[in-house]
Design a protein around this nucleic acid. Sequence first.
RNA 1: GCCCACGUAGUGUAGUUCGGUCAAGCAUCUCGGGCCUUCACCCCGAUGACCAGGGUUCGAAUCCCUGCGUGGGCACCA
Length: 563
Amino acid sequence: MRDRPDLRSQGKIIKPKVQVIVEQINQLTIEEQTKKVLQLDSHALDPEEKAQKEEKILPDLPNAEKGKVIMRLAPYPSGALHIGNARMVVLNDEYVKRYQGKLLLVFDDTIGTTLAQMDDPKAKYVIPEAYDLIPEGLEWLGVKYHEVYYKSDRVQIYQEEAEKLIAQGHAYVCTCDPKTFREEYKRPGKDCPCRGKSIEYHMDMYEKMKDGTIAEQGAVVRLKTGMNQKDPALRDHILMRISDAPHPRIGSKVRLWPVLEWSWGLDDHLLGVTHIVRGIDLRKEGEIEKFIWDLYGWPHAEIQLYGRLKFSGEFKLSKTLARQNVYSGEYEGWSDPRTWSLQSLAARGIQPSAVREALLDLGMSNRGIEFDKKWVYAKNTKLIDEHANRYWFVENPHSVLIEKIPFDKFTAEPLLHPNFPERGTRKIELPIKEGKARVYIAESDLHEYRNKRGKLLYPKLDAGQILRFKDMFNVEVKEMNDPIKVYFHSQEMSHNSRKVQVVPADESIFTKVLQPDGIITTGYATKYLKDLKVGDIVQFERYGYVKLKQISKDEIYGYFTNN
RNA sequence: GCCCACGUAGUGUAGUUCGGUCAAGCAUCUCGGGCCUUCACCCCGAUGACCAGGGUUCGAAUCCCUGCGUGGGCACCA
């Protein structure tokens, strides 16, 4: 039917005939069917060519011409960029690179809050160091931007254009309090009393907003988007409002500030932006911008929206929250793993391309999705594994006394990296005295172990069981006391024995690992970890990858990379 | 209450514009196997999905309607 359009109108006749034939064929044995098929087409049963691994490709942008695309990043400088901000960054950067366009970094540093609200710990405001933290994060991500702008330098434009719109009757000064406006006018879709007043009145009021006669919260400038808009979110949106809060870059010389929709409605045109890629939570903003562009008779930039990433559970993603904890000393600065800032990912040994690829894999889908760190971890493991040498580490250690060891000396010699024997081995000595030795094992090896489907692989550790101390020898558990007592059992390894990671007690060094959920795992690693350098990424066998942060005589401190 | 968007394997995504080559691709997870100085990496294989119900049509993941579910917007934040 696909290839024979002439038959399509005959579908009602053809269908029953086909059914009869299909039934006849189903009577035949598979062998007979195979034979007949091959008579018709000798290649019909050839194995299909392996679909080659297709590269993940974002959809093309509409009306995008190579070399003419201009896009922008619009971070609010209230802190370091975190992984949630990174999707916006990576998508824009990727498209700019595809079209060989230009990327503008525009600090969206309008005032954010009023002076009166600044004491609120949750208040959103610009902090000076963010102007450095953001480019630092972008550089780490491999983002190239071509021009830098500051909204705070452009306030005059927004003010003058607002004045023009008032003079033309497209905007007005509204003195209704927010609650009244929302409930009495916006919801039912009715004009507020300010809306109908004369242009002269509004011009005069605008002057008073600027010169300080009207206090914070006393009045706003509204755009006449229309109180009859179907979508209440769009009804007479605010353009400008008053704040006496000081600004880190320009101080207190400006008190009349634009909201996002207004500054961008102007700037996307004035800066020549052709394509906007942003989260769907900003859908309304795009609608207001379009209204503004129509008012001015400007061409529309193409707006593409992607779905929202949700961060819940262990993620406390908020630049404002991070600011509080960094300032209070609760966090170890902006690169603390708990911030999930780009700086923190760098400090943990997460590779920028792991972040990029994981976020680009989400494509431009419009769905709201829950962020899963495994997306990044899986990519990161593949990137760092070959560089990460192996070391022994046991978390939440328990003491084990090995007895009846039939030799005076034992040295384990596992490879530094099993894929690269040329890197050599580690030599871990097990000090033995009168057939006895002390080691640590991890708390987690005491419990029963089930796979993800709940199948019991190993029972709770108990007397009588035979274990393989990894890279050493087999032991039999005698007593589950403290310390746990085991007897040497045998030397040969069998592939399906239960393997337990140990660290010889006299060869150990206290080790701490800070995880992004704020938990510090403590345990023991083999002591010559001290010989490594700060910044090295290692794999603690059976635990995960760790980037070394501090190394001292009797303690190692690392950041958890991933598992 | 009002507006809008979105529902494809456990998870994420491709395919939906323009119905047929989709008995549905890819990645990750899980399971099994291989490799192997034992974890990991790598290689091979397996399990696993079109939200539900109607409609249009020869033919629906794709178009229409209804329902259900999820997310977002309705800020003097961005």
